[in-house]
Amino acid sequence: MHETDMTKALILTVRDWWEAQPERPQISQIHLTVGQFTCVEPASLQFAFEVQTQNSFLQGAKLVIRETPLIAFCHRCQQEYQPEIGIQYACPTCSSPMEDIRSGRELKIERIEYEQFNYMS
């Protein structure tokens, strides 16, 4: 359900950007990075996005979600490993606890693709 809130936050941020563009371009794609070690479910986010952008300036825009895996760094082994979410988080080699998360916590709007009339060409 919090995907609704996340989507609201997403739309507000994109709207701020859009309103600052003199041309008010047609946005075709929004690229997000969503870490696997967050509370966000990409499918729910897609659904909420479709519902909330109907009849808005984002009508027809596509949400492209890149998921990043949970990657931790074990200081004892001096190497990265991928914890198995839901099963085991400690280092599979030496059982040290997961302390240093290198990837998987991201919730980011990376970039926007938009169409615009180009006078130059």
Partner: peptide, 18 residues
């Protein structure tokens, strides 16, 4: 003509809440 452009944002989704 219409062209596709790219704008880098790099903004945290939870920025406003933060």
């Amino acid at each position: 003509m219409h062209q596709t452009f790219d704008a880098a944002l790099g903004i945290d989704l939870l920025h406003a809440n933060q």
